[in-house]
Amino acid sequence: MWDGVGDFIAMGGHGPYVWGSYGVFAALLIAEVLLLGRQRRRTRAMLVRRCRRQVAAQSHWGPES
């Protein structure tokens, strides 16, 4: 259907519109996934810190009965 890569990119003269649509969509999806990943890592780190603190406190004071 396409006459080489150049023809594909050109999209029959509508390249900027088509790739402007797909590009922005892809960029926003990537941004959302990255932001979510960062949030997940932060939360996990926070939970691990809390957990270690508690384990440390328990070993110092002895296990809670």
Binding site: G12, Y17, V18
Partner: peptide
Amino acid sequence: GFFVAPPDYQQGNSYRILFIH
């Protein structure tokens, strides 16, 4: 969307935006 679906009889290739719009 890009390699099987043919161009639209009126709009040519710009209609391919439909697949995400």
